[in-house]
Design a protein around this nucleic acid. Structure first.
Length: 564
RNA sequence: CGGAGCGUAGUUCAUCAGUAGAACGCAUGGUUCGGGACCAUGAGGCAGGAGGUGCGACUCCUCUCGCUCCGACCA
């Protein structure tokens, strides 16, 4: 490709709002432009990288026996409703209506569609297991797009789905994907840490995220020396006993000044640590049902964990108006007695003689004991894990926090979808059984951002060979006349390299200074730069983008080096 | 959804009540010619949109749309 004809060009300034380096560099180097929040245009350069990423993923999917298919973007909404995924996704799932008034979900993921797909062939045990996958545009109305290509509202996703007869072969599909994802990350030149995670709105019971460490990442994972690695939304930890050796004292209502409302007020008033107090956090479901999470005062409720326990779709923090409707107000919520679903955290069992739980104008309770004085409908792990807590697995090591970006996600569903959608196969004995499923996804745009985050310097991008838009960036410093460099014609070098099967970006621009060409080459980040100039005579200057030194080679030497 | 902020030339930003300016980019001519070079000339803007207050609005006010950041917070 001649640079002079390439659509898109480099610019000096990145958008003022860009925060992530990947965003700035991809913009400045002319790979992407934004169309609206979270929706990006890809230039020919950007699309080249895109295609290479797709090809690598495609190859690895083929290696584990995946079969590529295609499916529509608009899904009949009933397919989503069958598993209540429409509720779980909430506003994140976009919808449209056709002229007949039929509602469609705009594909945010495709489990239901693929399950429906498989049903149409009445599978037998002989057909199982199998993996089908696709690359398709996904639409998610994220609360907030961010970080350039890191979180977008519309993106290309490789999503695959496995269908198996039993747990064992379903697990094999799962681990096949697990290892394929590690291989893909390696080929893309990025480091990933597989962590246990929550399956969120997608449902299912078991999953791993592949996280790339990055200070600006939006995911937080917790790791332990024992090897335990989990997303913050999943991480299990040990709740230390606070005072279980203390004797249970009789429940007492004591006077308390009106100003004592927040946890900090309590600490100030009683001069006791936060862990001795009861804390209530109020949420509501989309339908308006009030959920009260009761937790030890020093801990924080994790909304994802809570959402999963409640299992009634998205939870919204209650507003002051909601509290007024409950005839209470901030700081005055009771641990019992409200018209609400009470969910307690396991930490309620680590303290004797809690303080709080029934704040009134000038009184509150002390010596409140879980089980004796109140109980919640459900007692579960709804606490957010933090650095420094003891690991839930080995119970010895302390958890450490790392920030990162989610590169891919693998889910095992068992019969979550197949049961709800009555997707069955016939076993050896002619009996109908539910298909065991798994689903696996990688976002292509995000992968591109992660690669750039990992491969760059102050001058620009340094593409790994495997995904570089071109293999070499040929710079002609004397384009105007062959007279200036009679010994070597850059146009001919360009032709010959291409004839050798090498992908070349050829900077043939006239009227552009050498400096500008070098700056552009560094910014664009093609792994090898070749310079043809008068100074180099009949030799070609060969320089790796990540190297400081260059060397002079003849054309054969260059081709040999590139083919190696 | 809440909070903060921003919408002026293709881009980054000035102007902050008196009829719009720079840099980069773009076009043309010339000089340069191995690390975003220089000179000259030129094209390009109903100041996001609607309404209001002023003799007068990019500037102040209201609404609206769009964009960015923070929070999603413990009651």
């Amino acid at each position: 490709m001649r640079y002079s004809k390439l659509f898109g060009k480099t610019v000096r300034n990145a958008p003022k709002d860009a925060v992530l380096e990947s965003h700035k560099l991809l913009f400045r180097a002319g790979f992407i432009r934004d169309l609206s929040a979270g929706r990006y245009l890809l230039t020919p350069l950007g699309f080249k990288v895109f295609e290479k990423i797709i090809k690598i993923i495609d190859e690895e999917m083929q290696t584990i026996g995946g079969q590529r298919v295609s499916s529509p973007t608009l899904h009949p909404l009933e397919l989503w409703q069958a598993t209540h995924r429409d509720v779980a996704f909430g506003e994140g799932l976009m919808r449209v209506k056709d002229r007949r008034g039929a509602w469609f979900a705009i594909g945010a993921t495709a489990e239901a569609v693929m399950t429906e797909f498989v049903k149409k062939f009445s599978p037998s045990w002989r057909d199982l297991p199998f993996v089908i996958y696709q690359f398709s545009q996904k639409f998610r109305d994220e609360l907030r797009a961010r970080g350039g290509l890191v979180r977008v509202r519309e993106f290309l996703m490789k999503d695959s789905y496995s269908f198996a007869a039993d747990e064992e072969s379903s697990l094999k599909c799962y681990w096949d994907h697990f290892h394929a994802y590690e291989k893909i990350a390696e080929r893309l030149g990025i480091k990933v840490i597989p962590v246990e995670a929550d399956s969120g709105a997608l449902g299912g019971d078991f999953c791993h995220e592949f996280i790339t460490p990055c200070d600006f990442g939006e995911d937080t994972i917790l790791t332990c020396e024992c090897g335990y690695r989990a997303n913050k939304e999943k991480a299990e930890f040990v709740r230390e006993n606070i005072n279980l050796d203390e004797e249970e004292k009789p429940l007492e209502i004591v006077s308390q000044p009106e100003w004592v409302e927040s946890m900090d007020d309590n600490v100030k008033h009683y001069n006791l640590p936060k862990s001795r107090f009861l804390k209530n956090v109020v949420y509501k479901t989309a339908k308006g049902k009030i959920i009260i999470a009761v937790i030890r005062g020093d801990l924080e409720v994790n909304e994802v964990k809570l959402t999963k326990v409640v299992n009634e779709g998205e939870l919204i923090p209650a507003t002051d108006e909601d509290l007024i409707k409950m005839e209470t107000k901030p700081g005055w919520v009771h641990c019992w007695g409200h018209q609400a679903l009470y969910i307690g955290d396991l930490s309620l069992q680590t303290v004797k003689n809690f303080i709080g739980g029934q704040k009134e104008k000038t009184t509150d309770c002390v010596n409140v004991n879980y089980g004796r004085d109140f109980t919640c409908e459900v007692l579960a792990d709804i606490t957010e894990a933090h650095e420094g807590y003891f690991c839930g697995k080995c119970r010895k090591g302390k958890l450490k926090e790392i920030r990162g970006i989610e590169f891919g996600h693998v889910f095992k569903y068992d019969d979550f979808y197949s049961k709800a959608m009555r997707a069955t196969f016939t076993d050896k004995n002619g009996k109908e059984k539910f298909l065991q499923m798994g689903a696996y996804g990688i976002g292509i745009e995000r992968a591109m951002a992660i690669i750039v985050e990992a491969h760059r310097d102050e001058k620009g991008i340094i593409w790994p060979k495997s995904v570089a838009p071109y293999q070499v960036h040929l710079v002609n410093l004397n384009p105007k006349s062959e007279i200036r460099n009679p010994k070597l014609n850059a146009d001919e070098v360009y032709e010959k390299l291409q004839a050798s099967g090498i992908e070349v970006l050829y900077d043939d621009r006239e009227e552009v200074s050498a400096g500008e060409k070098f700056v552009d080459a560094d910014l664009i980040g093609i792994p090898v730069r070749l310079v043809v100039s008068e100074r180099n005579g009949d030799k070609i200057e060969y320089k790796g983008r990540d190297k400081k030194e260059s060397e002079l080679l003849d054309l054969e030497g260059v081709v040999e080096r590139l083919k190696a």
